[in-house]
Simulated scan of single mutants.
Amino acid sequence: MVRFSNNLVGILNFITLLLSLPILIGGVWLSRQGTSECERFLDKPVIALGVFLLIVSLAGLIGACCRVSWLLWVYLLVMFLLILLLFCFTIFAFAVTNKGAGEAISNRGYKEYRLGDYSGWLQKRVNSQKNWNKIKSCLQDSKVCKSLIDDGSNTPADEFYNSHLSAIQSGCCKPSDGCGFNYVTPTNWTNTNTTSANPDCNAWSNDQKTLCFNCQSCKAGLLDNIKSDWKKVAVLNVIFLVFLIIVYSIGCCAFRNNREDNSWKRYP
């Protein structure tokens, strides 16, 4: 009679096996259909995740249902390493997202963002010219600033100043308020030859492909976005960790069942 723990491990891994197939297909589709580097950015990680889930779920499924103890042992080892890796990443994610927040500006609906407010590790990632060129290309391809003028370029200044911009829009699509530029349209400002020490003032351009994508505030806006997303991921990781630990415990029971059954067959 097949034991409950073996059945449960088999069912869970069969579900994981089914989930791995669309992930793998999606990764292959991205690699073939992506027309830009930005669109193809995730294809290899997605394919790797799909292959990993496929192999691990097969090992768990065969090991539990066919009573192949060595496969189940490999499955448990990988699960243990995954739990350890996920635990370390969760702690790291909480640590690097602990610093940084937008600064509220008087009579403005949006906030402004400064790169120095965020963790040093995150700053190093975006200060790398190689990394930032790729990120900037993705931001430009996404037309994140185009939405500001989709309804026309005649947005009154007061209405714009009271609008609630996203962190990336505030950092990348307009100059810093400290520059004192004169508003024309959401993405068009007149340079007043400010004496501000803020380097972003000189980095601003009315060229729609440039805007403030070379500004420190743009990097800070991206980091604020990453910080928010990573915090959500870290919370989900905690829930996933609990689930993995439960599955790992059930797998250990199935492994023990396999060993007991093999011993019983050897010594009738």
Rank of each mutant, 00 (worst) to 15 (best):
G100M: 10
R108P: 04
S69V: 13
L84E: 06
V78N: 02
A95D: 09
I55G: 01
F80N: 00
A93M: 08
W73G: 10
A95W: 14
N107Q: 13
A64R: 05
G109D: 09
W70E: 05
K99Y: 11
L77G: 10
M79Q: 11
L58G: 04
L76A: 11
G60A: 09
L81G: 00
W73N: 07
Y75W: 11
L85F: 14
V56S: 02
L71P: 01
S106N: 12
I55H: 03
R67L: 03
L81R: 10
F94G: 06
A104I: 14
V78R: 04
I83H: 03
W73A: 10
C65H: 04
T97I: 07
A93H: 09
N107L: 08
L72S: 11
W70H: 12
W70C: 13
C88N: 10
I105R: 12
G102L: 09
V68Y: 06
S57G: 03
M79E: 07
I105G: 05
G63P: 02
R67P: 01
L81P: 04
L76P: 09
V56K: 03
G60M: 02
A93T: 01
F92C: 02
K99L: 11
R108I: 09
C88Q: 08
C65L: 15
L85G: 13
I91V: 14
C66H: 09
L77F: 15
A104P: 10
N98C: 10
S106A: 12
V74E: 01
T90I: 07
L76Y: 02
L58I: 13
Y110W: 15
Y110Q: 10
I105A: 12
I62G: 00
V96C: 05
S69T: 15
T90F: 01
G100L: 09
V96I: 15
V74H: 03
C65W: 01
V56R: 02
L86W: 00
F80M: 04
Y110S: 15
L71T: 11
L71Q: 02
S57A: 11
S106L: 12
N98G: 14
L71K: 12
F80G: 08
G63V: 10
I55M: 11
A64W: 05
Y75L: 06
L58R: 01
V68F: 04
A64P: 06
K99G: 08
L58A: 09
S57K: 00
M79D: 03
